[in-house]
Write a protein that binds this DNA or RNA. Structure first.
Length: 496
DNA sequence: AAAAAAG
């Protein structure tokens, strides 16, 4: 059997790999490392979870030992579609490059230029970048890339989806034509093939099957629900509480606003929860992810920024709060669990309108997904007799005080409300707010509009504004267009 | 019906 020792890696790299506890390479590693070491171009078709990152990091480290360092000139460049992925690759360089004296610069957006500039001035051997920030640096004239010998384009299909290809082309023009290029993509649609043809010269093509663990070790279920968000939140809470083997979970929403909404809701219901989406500031993103990885947070509500590539080992559950619009996203999402042969569970909330998306998913994965408790048609009619479970303390919750890693300030939570006073209180709250706003004619605010996803500016914590954020949380929609005239009963729509 | 990435 092939071991890492057979692949031609340098002793320094090999010892770091051994220290990390690995002896047997994955198929993509066994296939890509030898030709990469021989300076061949690589076309790697592999998904996350196949060991793809090490398949370029390890040979790059070995090759970097051979050439000689040039003053202030990066010799390798890695392009990643998201900031988190770039950061993750940087971690890999630290881990496997611990016996090397390499300077690694992580050039991603959302953080200040200062530290990145300092690193570049000191001289970086390895650049790990998202395209926008890299171009920003080159345009500022601080970065010359004529010394780059190895270019890695990772997750090419995703780069295409995200419209990065023109940026990639521009970047490629700044790098010598004689470079070695390592090109990775999870899928190979015609556009990607064309792109690969343009970027690669006589590449070694390595294709590995998607990790088989995905379909086999993950228990997948559909969960019927009505389409209103508060119904879905309630169903989700029940579902989470019903899991007795839940260690940690990612909950996916299709939209950033819904990530923010659901995060606030679960937080207020006492769950240990974080959020991750692309409109959050980078510090919050980083802390959230770190806290989740360290198990300081049990649940992570996320957009598809977290669907692909992020290496979060050992997620026991995935919940799809929304059915993904594109079937491939479903595969990526549930690929967050059941990794490395572990078992996992994936639940997808489905309402009537999601039917065609579910069909597309079942077609793509070529299997029917079972319903948990009967399908949509077996669902009792909307809400009528259903008591939505409420109340402060939940099983999933830990300390109420955790405010770590959030960009909202800690504040006492209204958790002592009782079921009976709740409706009345809500009516009062809405009336009070209208008064303080001094705009009696203004239409009642749609909760979704108030719950915008972008983090609030740090200095914005006026009371009335906060109460507006708080009020709407879980209580269903406020009807639009009634001005001050909304009948009280309508403010508790969905409860009655 | 979306997300992501440069500010």
């Amino acid at each position: 059997m092939t071991t890492f020792a057979d692949l031609g890696l340098s002793p320094k790299v090999l010892s770091a790999v051994t220290d990390a506890g690995y002896t047997i390479p994955t198929p993509i590693q066994a296939g890509a490392i030898p030709p990469a070491l021989a300076r061949r171009d690589i076309l790697g078709i592999a998904q996350t979870g196949t060991g793809k990152t090490a398949s370029f990091v390890l040979p790059m480290l070995t090759l970097l030992e051979k050439g000689r360092a040039r003053a202030r000139m990066p010799r390798t460049l890695i392009l990643e579609p998201t900031r988190e992925l770039a950061a993750q690759v940087a971690e890999n360089f630290e881990k496997y490059g611990k016996n090397h004296k390499l300077n690694v610069a992580l050039l991603i957006g959302g953080v200040s230029f200062d530290e990145q500039d300092r690193k570049l001035e000191r001289g970086a051997d390895v650049l790990i970048c998202t395209p926008g920030r890299l171009l920003d640096h080159t345009e500022r004239g601080k970065l010359l890339m004529t010394g780059v010998e190895i270019l890695v384009i990772d997750e090419a299909d995703r780069m295409l989806d995200m419209g990065f290809i023109p940026d990639i082309e521009r970047i490629a023009k700044l790098i010598p034509f004689t470079r070695q290029t390592l090109f990775f993509s999870a899928t190979m649609p015609p556009e990607i093939q064309k792109l690969a043809d343009r970027f690669l010269q006589n590449p070694e093509r390595i294709e590995v099957a998607p990790p088989s663990s995905t379909a086999k070790t993950v228990t997948q279920r559909l969960v019927a629900t009505h389409s209103k968000d508060y119904e879905k939140r309630s169903v989700l809470r029940d579902l989470i509480r019903a899991q007795d083997d839940l260690k940690n979970a990612i909950i996916f929403c299709n939209r950033k606003v819904d990530v923010a909404d659901l995060f606030r809701s679960l937080d207020r219901h006492g769950f240990s929860v974080g959020a991750l989406h692309g409109d959050m500031d980078q510090r919050a993103r980083t802390t959230m992810l770190a806290n989740f990885k360290e198990n300081k947070l049990t649940l992570l509500v996320a957009s598809d920024v977290a669907a692909r590539g992020l290496d979060i080992p050992d997620v026991s559950h995935v919940f799809n709060f929304d059915v993904p619009i594109h079937a491939e996203d479903y595969v990526h999402r549930i690929g967050r669990t059941g990794r490395a042969g572990r078992s996992g569970a994936a639940f997808t909330l489905v309402s009537k309108r999601d039917g065609k998306f579910v069909d597309a998913i079942e077609k793509l994965i070529d299997q029917k997904i079972e319903w948990l408790n009967g399908d949509i048609d077996a669902l009792p009619p909307q809400a009528e007799s259903e008591e939505r479970p409420r109340g402060g303390r939940e099983r999933g919750g830990r300390d109420r005080d955790r405010s770590r890693g959030r960009n909202t300030r800690g504040e006492p939570r209204a958790e002592t409300r009782t079921e009976t006073s709740e409706a009345q209180e809500k009516v009062e709250a809405v009336k009070a707010e209208r008064k303080t706003e001094g705009r009696p004619q203004a239409p009642a605010r749609n909760p979704r509009a108030a719950n915008h996803a972008a983090p609030r500016p740090a200095n914005d914590d006026s009371r009335d504004r906060r109460s507006r954020y708080r009020r709407d949380d879980d209580d269903g929609p406020t009807p639009l267009g009634f001005g001050d005239e909304v009948p009280a009963f309508m403010l508790i729509a969905g409860k009655a």
